[in-house]
Every structure is written in C-alpha cells, then in structure tokens.
Nucleic acid binder design. Structure first.
Length: 516
RNA sequence: GCUCGUGUGGUGUAGUUCGGUCCAUCAUGCCGCCCUUUCGAGGCGGCGACCCGGGUUCAAAUCCCGGCACGAGCACCA
C-alpha cells in the first residue's frame, strides 16, 4: 500500500489503475459502497436450520409495536427457509394475567400480517411439566437452589454482593423445599428458585437470578394445577433450547436476559442461540401506550373496544383498511438497529398509499354540501361515464345521468365560497350565480379550480369517522352511492382514502377514515 | 449508585466488520415546478446529517482515547 501510494505520487492515480487493471482487476471493482436493501444477513445461518420465534404475552391483541417482531422474524424465516414459532409466554397470572381471547386474536393478527400460519404454536402454560423437570434437574445438580429470602431481603444482599443464607444448603434440603413449593405448602412470595451464578458478577442483575416463583392463582388455560411457575428468563431459555431456536431477535431491554440465560446454558452445557437486538419504538401519533393501559381504558369505556380506530392495535389498523404488505414493507425498511426510534404513522401511510392507490376506486364525497341547480338547456340529457380510476387501474366506471328532472348537484361549501367560476371534475366549467349554475364550456377553458361534485340523485347521507388523538371526529356529507359495498376501500376524491364500514337499510352510510 | 447499549439531515435508514471516487445512500417530510379533468398517483428540481474534542494516517462517518447526550436493565412482569 505504501509502495502504491508512492507510485501514485510520482505517476498519478491513473497509473495505479492501469497497473491494477493488468495485475488485479478485482481490486478495481467494489469501489462504490452499495446501499444494502432489505434485511441484513443473519450470523451463523448457513448449514443449519434457522428457527426463530415470536413470543408475545397473551394479555391483549397485537399492537403496531408487536408487528415489528412478527414481520422481522417471519421475513428472516422466509429468507433462510427456516421456521417460525409463535410462542405464548403466559406464565404470569398476577401482574399481566393472560386473556383467554387474546390467544385467538394474536393468531388472527399474526396470520393477517404474514399471510400464513406460524409453523409451530406453543403455549408455555401447556409446557409446564418440561420447565418443572428442568428446574428439578437444576436443583439436583446443585446449580439452582430454593431461596426463602423475601424479595426485599435479597435485593439488599444482591446489591451488597453477599450470598443468600440459603445458597449453600444441601441438595437434599433444597429438594425438600422444592417439593413444598410444588405441593403448595409454601405461600406466594415465601420462596423462589434461583440460578446459582455468582454474587461477584459486576452486573447486579445477573447475580443468582430468580428462575421460578410461587403463584397460587388460577390460570385461564390450566387452572390451579401448578403452584410454581417459571419466570420469563427461565421459561424462555428452556423453551428456546427445546425448540432448537437458532436465532433470537429481541428488544435491547432484554440484553441482560441474554446474559442471564447464557449463564444458565453454561450450567446445562447447551449452546446459546445467536442473538440480535432492536431498540425501543415510539409512534409519534400514539405516544406511550401499553397493553394493560389500553385494557383499562377500554374497561372504562373510553374506547369502544380493541379495534377502536384511535388505538394502535393491529385490529384497529385492519379495521381501518390498512394493507398488511405495507406494514411488512415499512418494518423491513426500518430494519434492525439498536437505536431507540420515533416513527410516524405518516411513513406507514405513505407506504400504504403506494400500495392501495392502484387498487381503489374513486368516489365522490361532498362535505358541507351546497345544492346547485344546473342549467342544462340544449344539452339534455347528459350521460357521464366516469372511470373508477383515472388510469383505469380499477376496471369499470360509474354512470351519472343529468337531465331536466335530475339537474340538482352538490358542491362542497368551501369550493363554492372559493370561486364562482369552477370546473366540475370530469364534466364542465360552470359559473355559479347564487343557487344556479350555468355551463360555460365542456372544455377546460382556463385555470379555474377543479372540484369534485355529485348529482343529487346519486347521493346518499354518509358519515366519515376520523380518528384523532383522543376523539373520533365526525364528518357528515353526501356519498356517491354507485357500486359500493361494505368493507370496500375507496378514495374519496380530493379528500382521501376511507373504508366503507356499514351500509344500513336506513340512515347514513358509515365510513372510516384511512389516510390522506 | 452499579451494569449495559446507542449516537449519520425534521423522521427513519445505507455505508462503520476490512479507513480511500462518501464534497455521504435511499425513503419519508417540507418547498417549488411539470403533467393529469382530484388537493391522489406519477415526473423533475430544491432543502437538510456523519454528537463534541483530541489522536493515528497521505487519507477518518469508518480506527484509538477522552468527553457529552440519550435510552435500557438492576421485578417473585413479559
């Protein structure tokens, strides 16, 4: 290299290039650093079966935040032709008790996001015998022990780096207490099983960490069968090994979890999976939210349910008409970084617009309608064929008929106030005089504003529900009622995308706002 | 307090492993223009960043040291 630089000084860089071209053409390629697209490569993924897992707590349906885990894990599984396990980490009955319905909801949300079923579904609560077996093994081999300190007492010991008085008891004594825990003879909080690590580890979080605790509460799936339940770090570690998980992708708040679990794996002499982390995600529009917080708000009737259009749940996104593949694109674009990030729904919406613009029919929706009488002498009747999509990407068209009996139309108040000369989109340039409209030309004759409009005989009352931070805004108006159906997503011209949710026999059509 | 992690435009990202066409990628956002019978979509152009300070080097976003900022863990929650 030094030699090359000297040559460059004397003969110029061109000389080097010529030399290299002769001697080592490869050195000239790969100069420009390329932009990586999509997911990065996984470490240590060749020559082995890639097994990943997505492990939510079934205490509510999936949120936007969860969807990152679903997308990233499933895309990696796809990339490496591996498999993805959906695992319900439901071993807590006290702080975040499982919600029976949530198991089903999560499976539905998962399928909606990925478009397929998970390869394996595991419910931790149904795998209890395995966890208890390993716990017993741990105690029998002397690398786990029953500690009867209170959590407060242990916290003090841990912070001071002092061993628990129960740490050096005999295996027999430990097994005796273990049996009492199992049989329910020890009350909640009076004993815990710890993994023996070391009290001298610099990181206090890793010192003799708790693996199982006592819970005498009823579990919605397995009832009161078990008195001792594993904590996440233990349960997850055991299950990952049982399932042959090769790669774990988790939040960086779980970095200490990895370290704890590695110490456990050393005891068992297992090989720990490759681990990747991502940072915290905040969604601008939603700020801080938690599943349990949402649950409480719903119970207080602040929201209509988990699919309330103001909530950051997958159910809500589905209801509003988001496309699952834009959610996938969105997360893949964000990729994996350990940075804590703030994202905006705007970005997701932009992905979604690109995805659905070519799929959605155009319809007219007039807010604050003003009725105008069109003067149509001489050109009567008029049959307008307006395509469903300006580039005909959605087949078909709507037919609007205007004749002497049907010459009343609606225009938005705002547009009428803006100018008396306006262009009715797809139709004619008119001049408005009070409540009358005179057609000046069928052609575009000037730069007058182009507005959307609607013949009276094609219109029907409609309500557009728009989610706003805390409220649902209500926009009343008149909707074009040609070829619409419940569940249909359309672009309301000059307004934005919306989903038609309900077409009742009487009363206004109900629509939900998607995005602009 | 102890431990761990992260700093690239308003936001998110690529590049950092292995220093060199990087006066830094792409997207989103914002601004302007064009096109279009939508304020949508599309096209074009513009705005805007390597946390700070040293060091090594011909050369630093990239390596080293020291700051600073932000975040997380230290639960018998997940």
């Amino acid at each position: 290299m030094t030699r090359a630089n000297n040559i460059a000084k004397e003969h110029g860089i061109g000389h080097i290039e010529r030399l290299l071209a002769k001697e080592n053409p490869d050195a000239l390629i790969r100069k420009k650093q390329k932009r990586r697209v999509g997911l990065p490569d996984l470490n240590n993924a060749e020559n082995r079966k890639v097994v990943l897992r997505f492990a939510p707590n079934p205490n509510g349906p999936l949120t936007i935040g969860h969807s990152r885990g679903v997308v990233v894990n499933s895309k990696f599984a796809e990339k490496y032709n591996g498999k993805l396990i959906l695992r319900f980490d439901d071993t807590d009955t006290k702080v975040k008790p499982p919600l029976l319905d949530a198991y089903k909801w999560i499976e539905e949300d998962y399928e909606w996001i990925t478009g397929r079923k998970p390869d394996v579904i595991i419910k931790a609560s149904e795998r209890m015998p395995i966890y208890l077996k390993y716990a017993q093994e741990m105690i029998s081999n002397g690398f786990g022990y029953v500690c009867r300190c209170s959590s407060k007492e242990f916290k003090k010991l841990r912070d001071d780096g002092v061993s628990s008085p129960y740490r050096e008891r005999s295996i027999e004594e430990n097994l005796e207490d273990w049996d009492k825990m199992i049989s329910g003879d020890i009350e909640e909080g009076d004993a815990v099983v710890r993994v023996k690590t070391s009290m001298e580890i610099p990181n206090p979080a890793l010192r003799d960490w708790p693996a199982l605790r006592i819970q005498h509460r009823k579990h919605p799936l397995v009832g009161e069968k078990y008195k001792v339940w594993p904590l996440l770090d233990f349960q997850s570690a055991i299950e990952d090994h049982e399932q042959g998980v090769s790669h774990i992708i988790r939040g960086k708040d779980l970095m200490d979890s990895t370290r704890k679990q590695k110490l456990l794996y050393e005891h068992f002499q297992w090989e720990y999976p490759e681990t990747l982390y991502w940072g915290r995600v905040k969604v601008f529009e939603f700020g801080g939210f938690s599943t349990s917080g949402m649950k409480n708000s719903i119970m207080r009737n602040e929201y209509s349910g988990w699919d309330d259009i103001r909530l950051p749940t997958i159910k809500s996104l589905r209801r509003r008409g988001f496309n699952a593949s834009s959610l996938n694109d969105f997360w893949i674009d964000l990729g994996l970084s350990q940075k804590d990030i703030s994202i905006s729904m705007q970005t997701l919406e932009s992905f979604n617009v690109k995805k659905i613009d070519s799929l959605t029919a155009r319809r007219s929706f007039i807010r604050e309608p003003i009725e105008i009488d069109l003067k149509i002498e001489g050109i009567n009747p008029i049959i307008l064929k307006i395509p469903n999509h300006p580039e005909n990407l959605v087949e078909g068209h709507r037919e609007w008929i205007i004749d002497e009996n049907n010459c009343k139309i609606y225009i938005e108040k705002q547009d009428v106030e803006k100018s008396d000369k306006i262009r009715l989109k797809d139709f004619a340039s008119i001049k408005i005089n009070k409540k009358n409209g005179n057609i000046e030309s069928m052609d575009i004759i000037d730069k007058r504003p182009i507005v959307h409009w609607l013949p009276k005989n094609n219109s029907r009352d409609a309500i557009l529900y728009i989610p706003s931070e805390k409220d649902v805004l209500i926009q009343e108006g008149l909707l074009e009622m040609k070829d619409i159906s419940e569940g249909m997503i359309c672009q309301l011209e000059r307004v934005g995308f919306a989903k038609i949710e309900k077409i009742p026999n009487t009363g206004p059509i109900e629509m939900i706002w998607l995005h602009g």
